[in-house]
Computed example of a mutant assay.
Amino acid sequence: MKVLGIETSCDETGVAVYDTEAGLLSHRLHSQIELHAEYGGVVPELASRDHIRRLPLLIRQTLASAALEVGDIDGVAYTAGPGLAGALLVGASVAESFGLAADIPVLPVHHLEGHLLSPLLSADPPAFPFIALLVSGGHTQLMRVAGVGDYTLLGESLDDAAGEAFDKTAKLLGLGYPGGPQLARLAEQGQAGRFRLPRPMLHSHDLDFSFSGLKTAVLNVVSSEAWQPRDAADLAADFQQAVVEVLCAKALAAMKAAGLKTLVVAGGVGANRALRLQLDAATAKRGWRVHYPEPELCTDNGAMIAFAGGLRFAAGERPAQVPAVRVKPRWPLMELRPPQVA
C-alpha cells in the first residue's frame, strides 16, 4: 500500500510517499526558517499561508521523484495535531481533498506518534517493546512503547520542555531563530564547568522533568554584574551539559525500572550531538541499545507521518465513512489507541 504523508503542524512543510512493502519511496521538506527569522519566532498566519503555497508543488515533486501518479496512491495520512490550528487545517484540507478526488481513504495522524515511530524507518530498526525518550520543541516525555498506539506514559516535563528551554536560553544569550540548534553549536565552542547550573529533578526519584528553573538560573547569570558576553559559549556548554545529564539519567532509570534494554530517542532535540554521545556511551556500558531517527528525520517531516499512517493502514485501520477535516491543536498522545480495524 502506497501512502502519501502530509506534515504541516508548525513551520515545516513535509510530504512523503511510504510503501508498506517497499519502504520510504520519496520525501520532500520545505523549512520556513528564513520566513520567521526576522520575527524571532513562528508567526502562525505566515506559517499557514506558506503551507498553502508550498504543498501543491511539494506533492508534485514527491510523486515525480517516486515515479508515481496520483492514481498510484492508495491512502493519505496527514498531521491532525498537535500543532498550530491554521497550519494543521491547511494540511488536513489538502489531504481530505486529495483523498476525495482520488477516492482513497484518509487517516489523521498524531504528530508525536510520527516522531515516536520514526526510528523504525532506519536500516536497523528497534523491536517492540522499548523505552522512548521523546524530546521535541514542546514535549519531553518518557514512555513504554509496546506497539503502535500502545503507549504508557512514565514521566514528562512539568513545565518547560527541553526544546523550549533550549530556545528560551538561546534568546537570553542573544542568539537568533531557531535558537535551540544555534545554542547547541555555540556550546561546542565552549568549555563546560565554569558555571554552577542546577540539574532540576535529577534526584526526584521519579521520571518527570523540569527545565524552567534551569532557564531561570541562566537568566540570573546573564543579569549579574559579572556577566561578559564573551562567556556565552561556556554558559551554553554548561546549560547543554545540565539538560543532557538529566535526560540521560531519567532515560536510563526508565529502562532499568521497566526491565528493557532498548531505548528510542525521537524528536528534534534527539539530533543533539552531546545527547547522542552521552546516551551511546551510557547504554553501551550496560550492554543496552539506543536507536535514533536518521538525522534528516529528526525535525518535522512528511516521512514520519506517511510511515505512521502506513502502519495503521496495514493493520486494517480505516477512517470514518464521511470525509471530514479533523484537527486537534491540543491532543495528548496518551489518547491514542492501537489501530482500530474497520
Results as ranks from 00 to 15, higher is better:
residue 72 D to P: 00
residue 63 L to K: 04
residue 65 S to K: 13
residue 69 E to P: 00
residue 71 G to L: 06
residue 30 H to W: 15
residue 46 L to Y: 01
residue 35 L to Y: 10
residue 35 L to Q: 08
residue 28 R to S: 10
residue 62 T to I: 07
residue 20 T to A: 12
residue 66 A to H: 03
residue 61 Q to F: 09
residue 51 H to M: 08
residue 45 E to S: 03
residue 38 E to R: 15
residue 19 D to F: 04
residue 78 Y to R: 05
residue 61 Q to R: 10
residue 61 Q to I: 04
residue 41 G to I: 14
residue 35 L to C: 07
residue 72 D to S: 09
residue 53 R to T: 07
residue 31 S to P: 00
residue 36 H to C: 06
residue 69 E to V: 04
residue 51 H to A: 06
residue 29 L to Q: 10
residue 79 T to M: 07
residue 44 P to D: 08
residue 24 L to S: 01
residue 76 V to W: 04
residue 67 A to I: 08
residue 72 D to K: 07
residue 78 Y to T: 01
residue 64 A to W: 07
residue 46 L to H: 05
residue 45 E to H: 02
residue 70 V to W: 15
residue 24 L to K: 03
residue 25 L to D: 03
residue 73 I to W: 04
residue 50 D to R: 14
residue 35 L to N: 06
residue 71 G to K: 12
residue 70 V to C: 13
residue 45 E to T: 01
residue 21 E to V: 06
residue 65 S to M: 12
residue 35 L to G: 02
residue 30 H to P: 00
residue 69 E to W: 09
residue 35 L to P: 00
residue 55 L to Y: 08
residue 69 E to Y: 11
residue 47 A to E: 00
residue 49 R to D: 02
residue 20 T to M: 10
residue 53 R to D: 10
residue 53 R to C: 09
residue 43 V to S: 06
residue 26 S to Q: 15
residue 62 T to Y: 11
residue 78 Y to Q: 03
residue 32 Q to T: 02
residue 78 Y to I: 01
residue 33 I to V: 14
residue 31 S to Y: 07
residue 66 A to C: 03
residue 20 T to S: 11
residue 58 L to I: 04
residue 60 R to A: 15
residue 36 H to V: 05
residue 66 A to V: 01
residue 72 D to A: 13
residue 67 A to H: 12
residue 35 L to H: 07
residue 80 A to S: 08
residue 45 E to G: 03
residue 23 G to T: 07
residue 23 G to P: 00
residue 39 Y to Q: 12
residue 76 V to G: 01
residue 63 L to R: 03
residue 28 R to H: 12
residue 44 P to R: 12
residue 47 A to S: 08
residue 66 A to R: 05
residue 30 H to V: 13
residue 60 R to L: 13
residue 62 T to H: 10
residue 75 G to F: 01
residue 64 A to V: 04
residue 53 R to E: 11
residue 27 H to N: 09
residue 48 S to G: 08
residue 22 A to Q: 14
residue 46 L to S: 07
residue 63 L to I: 05
residue 20 T to K: 09
residue 40 G to D: 10
residue 42 V to P: 00
residue 45 E to M: 02
residue 53 R to A: 13
residue 80 A to H: 02
residue 74 D to A: 11
residue 26 S to V: 05
residue 43 V to H: 05
residue 68 L to W: 05
residue 36 H to F: 11
residue 61 Q to W: 06
residue 44 P to C: 10
residue 54 R to H: 12
residue 33 I to L: 14
residue 77 A to D: 03
residue 29 L to Y: 08
residue 36 H to W: 12
residue 51 H to T: 01
residue 46 L to P: 00
residue 70 V to E: 14
residue 79 T to A: 06
residue 67 A to M: 12
residue 49 R to S: 05
residue 61 Q to E: 12
residue 75 G to Q: 02
residue 71 G to T: 05
residue 28 R to G: 06
residue 63 L to S: 04
residue 72 D to E: 08
residue 64 A to D: 14
residue 55 L to A: 13
